[in-house]
Nucleic acid binder design. Structure first.
Lengths: 166, 166
DNA sequence: CATAATTGTTAGACAAGGCTAACAAATTTT
DNA sequence: AAAATTTGTTAGCCTTGTCTAACAATTATG
């Protein structure tokens, strides 16, 4: 992992906390230390100390023993993380046909390190394979066939032969 | 980054050191502390202390002030990292049409966290788009067209219309 | 070959981010 | 409302992985 030129604004850990807070809130769950702790599988003191850091950076509001809220800035950081997470998760499931669990796990890791360009391209990639109506069975289907059978589907081989016959 | 069930054997940092050592050696450069330091952009004392840890784990051989070598086990770990790196880098450049620099940077990060399944699928994906001779311009070309022009290439639209006309 | 330059190591500091144990506040139960 | 339970905090420790400063070994140079 050679150092990249642009330093990330927030650490993976801090991004995880922000993401968890946003997701708990969106799921209408009380955003409390215990909930965050459960979701991230860390102990409560870790949450308390993370919230302190996030407070100092102006990303969350947290009064002792009370609920947690995102500031507008924290909100926008969280939004970015969630957006990356979802794009990655969709890419893994829809483009690569990966099971949801693995897709989620990988998205959780990669969301902290992927470049904006690569992310954008994955999004464009999904758009493209969904928008292009060419061919039947279409691209994802043929790809899945290849995954399942270990060899190219009929129509690929057939066309390939055609060419060679010429 | 919710904790995954399977603990990684080695930390990203340790993987980076092993990868760097393997790559320096493959480039026929002397594998020395200074070289590793330059390549990973860390100071020499960091390298020294990393090598000490890797020694303890039986992954490298390093006598004070001397060259560094991988043990067979270190070799096989390094091989895995390099393999992941290359697969990712290829996927980014060949499937997503990302510039080499960005592809390399992303590969350097993601190589430490991606699941075996996702990696395998990316490899299969490249195999597939390269092996399937169907369509002209082929999949990657149409995708690139979409990237450059922001809209689907002619033949996608044409075929789409055909269908609607039926 | 003696000195200079380079390379490598040691010692020690520090930040991040986890943990446990002990205690305190808040909430629930009886 | 008092006691019990749950939730949250504090204090302090630990590991990883960096760094700088100072020193030591090695290698190159005049």
């Amino acid at each position: 992992m050679v150092k990249q030129q642009v330093e990330r604004e927030h650490t993976p850990s801090m991004e995880d906390y922000l993401e968890a807070i946003a997701m708990l809130r969106d799921a209408n769950k009380a955003v409390r230390v215990s909930q965050i702790s459960r979701r991230l599988k860390v102990r409560m003191p870790s949450v308390t100390s993370a919230l302190e850091k996030l407070s100092e950076k102006g990303l969350v509001v947290h009064e002792r023993y009370r609920y947690v809220e995102l500031t507008p800035e924290g909100e926008s950081v969280a939004e970015g993380v969630v957006h990356r997470h979802e794009a990655l998760s969709r890419f893994f499931t829809e483009a690569l046909d990966i099971d949801r669990k693995t897709a989620e796990e990988d998205a959780c890791k990669i969301e902290h390190v992927i470049s904006p360009l690569s992310l954008e391209r994955m999004i464009k990639f999904i758009e493209f394979i969904q928008a292009c109506p060419l061919e039947e069975p279409n691209f994802p289907k043929r790809y899945k066939y290849y995954l399942e059978h270990g060899q190219l589907p009929e129509e690929c081989l057939a066309r390939g032969l055609e060419k060679e016959e010429r």
